[in-house]
Design a protein around this nucleic acid. Structure first.
Length: 589
DNA sequence: ATCACGCGGGG
DNA sequence: GTGTACGCGTGAT
């Protein structure tokens, strides 16, 4: 047995002999070698909140459930007795949970919809995009499905985070060009003419059947060979991250269909598996086992606020420079006409390099969010900020011994949907040019209110004679003691941020300061998200009372501040939520 | 006012 | 994959 350490990139599970086996995909920190580590020690479980514990244990045993443990957790702060029900396989959970929920001895079931790999990350206290270490044994021979450059390790025990340094990530970006003479590209008819790749692994080229006189073009025989060469490069390089722009919904589905038609295998997974495109609601997501595929389009949509999110627009906003842009419906002519073709090659290269540059700029923040939230980068990069906040809280709930609330039912969801908390106070700006403007604003107004007024679903109470904070306008009451779940978590986030900012001030290494700055930025974003999620209808800790109380206190604070400023001779010309602008008149009111 | 519908990105 | 899912603007009624 040996101690292994690696950077954790991705996670999933397999079924071996009907039992689940967690797979951890990572890279050895020193040699940068790909590793797949198997852990067969983890089992799925859910909680039942019993009405009658003894009867419930009998009823569960009757369903064939043997591993039952009576234990204590808190439910929105209140201690409750629960039965932890262990299953043999994750897929038993959806099969049995309705029957368990419908038992007369059961009041409710909890944590029955936490994906198995997420449960593992939370319960084992490990996070992706960070170091982990474990005891294990090297598998005798890498199985036939796995290429020989991947080490296979069976984890025996002792998995934990390891805090040694984080190596430079291998990032590869890609982008395809299609010859589509009849409107939108149709993979049934329109061939792929170029695949551009760029990254920090010594790659920057366009793979194509033409362009032989251009030094950045790698020329191959036909379309199938373009796809094969692309697959070969990805398989050989095994980048940590593969990025595209709208690649979930365009490049990868298109590549897959063309590969199918041409009989090419897109087996890019470290285990030799094919890329897999999944339907995720209204959109797709393409996954590669091992390498993390990040589609920058959904990431950029969340990161900036623009009218459009085309690659050109996003690039211009981030770097202040225009990139080469050709009309999409004319690209096929650039391919067909020899005198224009070089321009198409340059456009292809420009696109893929732009994609890489955006990745370089935006991934550090997403890596930090991944480490803080503790779920895979693949998921984090496709999650709305509310979802990120929720999974962060799910992890915290485990640490605090709190039960995770269930997701709202369909009817609950539609009931919530129409409701919206009144927003911040806005005083419409006075027309005209104002001189000598003074600006006042609150630092992290909403997070501060949540903490100082202890606003949390578990501190909200109907008791009249409690030691409570009472919300203005609404009169909602929040117990002062003990600290609520969400305020505690935000408190942790903010104090961690203060610690990092202190470290940043002390550091004189510009590289280190930059990293610390991204970390504190990620924490700030998460703290600011926490307020909004109370009013987000799919949120597990949804509370319209909390959402309304926060903005009510916010309005109260800013109005009172404005009033005091006016007593000192200021005149407010514009106010919005957490700040206002004023002129100094000297007239005390 | 309320509701169904369609779009985003990609070529 | 312990699947299964957005949010907004538009035009019609």
């Amino acid at each position: 047995m040996e101690r292994y350490s690696m950077v954790l990139l991705d996670i999933d599970y397999l079924t071996v002999d009907e039992m689940p086996v967690i797979r951890l995909f990572g890279k050895d920190k020193s040699g940068n070698e790909p590793i797949i580590a198997y852990d067969s020690s983890f089992r799925p479980y859910i909680y039942a909140i019993p009405i009658d514990t003894e009867r419930c244990l009998d009823d569960l045993a009757e369903l064939g459930l043997e591993k039952l443990e009576v234990t204590e957790r808190r439910d929105l702060g209140k201690p409750v007795e629960v039965i932890r029900i262990e299953f043999r396989h994750p897929q038993e959970v959806p099969k049995l949970r309705d029957r368990i929920r419908n038992l007369e001895s059961v009041a409710d079931i909890r944590e029955h919809d936490i994906p198995f790999y997420r449960r593992y990350l939370i319960d084992r206290s490990i996070v992706p995009m960070a170091g982990i270490e474990f005891n294990g044994v090297e598998a005798e021979s890498a199985s036939s499905i796995t290429s020989d450059d991947v080490r296979i390790i069976e984890i025996t025990d002792g998995i934990q985070t390891s805090d040694s340094g984080f190596p430079q990530l291998d990032i590869l970006s890609f982008d395809i060009e299609v010859r589509n003479p009849h409107g939108m590209p149709d993979p049934e008819n329109d061939e792929i003419v170029m695949v551009g790749i760029a990254g920090n692994m010594g790659v920057e080229s366009v793979i194509s059947t033409r362009g032989e006189h251009l030094d950045f073009v790698e020329r191959v025989g036909d379309e199938a060979a373009i796809l094969e060469r692309f697959a070969e490069i990805v398989r050989e390089k095994k980048p940590d991250i593969l990025v595209g722009y709208n690649s979930d919904n365009f490049d990868f589905p298109y590549l897959s269909r063309r590969a199918e038609i041409l009989g090419v295998e897109l087996d890019l997974g470290w285990d030799g598996s094919r890329i897999k495109t999944m339907r995720r609601g209204f959109a797709n997501a393409t996954a590669i086992k091992g390498t993390v595929h990040v589609d920058l389009y959904p990431v950029m949509r969340r990161y900036m606020n623009l009218d459009r999110y085309t690659l050109e627009r996003v690039y211009q906003e981030l770097f202040g420079e225009e990139k080469l842009d050709l009309p999409g419906d004319k690209l096929w002519e650039y391919w067909d006409r020899e005198e224009l073709r070089d321009e198409l090659f340059r456009y292809s290269l420009d696109d893929v390099v732009a994609t890489y540059r955006i990745a370089e700029k935006i991934l550090p923040l997403n890596m930090e969010l991944t480490r803080i939230v503790g779920q895979p980068l693949f998921d984090i990069s496709r999650m709305a900020t509310g979802q990120q906040a929720e999974w962060f809280l799910v992890r915290k709930a485990y640490q605090y011994g709190e039960l995770v609330p269930n997701k709202p039912s369909h009817s609950e969801f539609s009931k919530r949907r129409g409701r919206r908390a009144v927003g911040g106070y806005v005083k419409e700006p006075e027309r005209g040019l104002h001189e000598n403007i003074v600006q006042f604003d609150f630092r992290s107004l909403y997070p501060s209110i949540i903490i100082s007024k202890n606003i949390s679903p578990d501190t909200l109470t109907d008791e009249k004679d409690c030691d409570c904070h009472v919300a203005p306008e609404y009169g909602y009451r929040f117990r002062k003691e003990p600290a609520g779940f969400v305020p505690s978590v935000i408190g942790e986030i903010l104090s961690e941020r203060v610690r990092i900012k202190g470290e940043m001030k002390r550091s004189d290494d510009p590289m280190e300061r930059k990293i610390l700055n991204v970390q504190q930025e990620a924490l700030k974003r998460l703290a600011n998200t926490m307020y909004g999620v109370y009013g987000y209808s799919r949120f597990r800790w949804y509370s319209m009372e909390c959402a309304e109380a926060i903005t009510a206190w916010g309005r109260d604070y800013i109005k009172r501040t404005i009033k005091i400023a006016e007593e000192f001779g200021f005149h407010t010309v514009y106010a919005d939520t957490d700040g206002f602008y004023a002129t100094y008149t000297g007239r005390r009111s």
